[in-house]
């Protein structure tokens, strides 16, 4: 790189920095300010903040949608932040994990051929609602009993 070229670049860089200082706060300062604003919330875990040209991007995990919105607003309220990209994710709750359990999946498979039956699983108990022809009841019960449930709570209306 020629000396001339280097000089031009240094001048250009300084010019940009000076202009940046005049018009708006530095991204690094904004980052600190946004971090301070959102980390006050105890519900936030594993957070990350990046700021580029005044645009703050939030990452991390929160327990619910309300907290996500709240933190987005807190970041947007920091003077100098032009906009917020809210990439916070909502942690999966226990309820959803239970629905994915092997028993729930097996019950779904077992009741598939009986569209008038609705089956739910909670704490190992399979609850059946809806209606069913009597001729099909035994077959369904055989299949469900083989899945090792805690119990089968049959609330079906038998036709």
């Amino acid at each position: 790189m020629s000396k001339m070229m280097a000089l031009v670049m240094v001048v250009a860089f300084m010019g940009a920095t000076v202009t940046g200082c005049k018009n708006k706060p530095k991204d690094a300062d904004l980052k600190t300010a946004v971090e301070t604003a959102i980390q006050a919330n105890p519900k936030l875990s594993a957070s990350g903040v990046t700021v580029e040209k005044g645009v703050a991007t939030l990452s991390g995990q929160v327990p619910d949608e309300a907290t996500k919105e709240e933190l987005g607003k807190a970041a947007a309220a920091v003077p100098g932040v032009t906009s917020v990209v809210n990439n916070l994710t909502i942690a999966i709750t226990n309820v959803e994990i239970a629905a994915d359990s092997p028993l729930a999946i097996a019950v779904k498979d077992a009741t598939k051929d009986f569209p008038t039956v609705t089956a739910t699983v909670a704490d190992g108990v399979v609850t059946l609602k809806g209606e069913l022809q009597k001729a099909n009841l035994q077959k369904l019960m055989m299949a469900l009993n083989a899945l090792k449930p805690k119990k089968v709570d049959n609330q079906l209306v038998i036709k």
Binding site: K134, L137, M141, N145, A146, K148, P149, K150, K151, V152, D153, N154, L156, I158
Partner: peptide, 12 residues
């Protein structure tokens, strides 16, 4: 009609 829910019979 297996209405009592007091048996789980798994006969293979």
């Amino acid at each position: 009609n297996y209405a009592s829910g007091d048996v789980v019979m798994n006969i293979n």
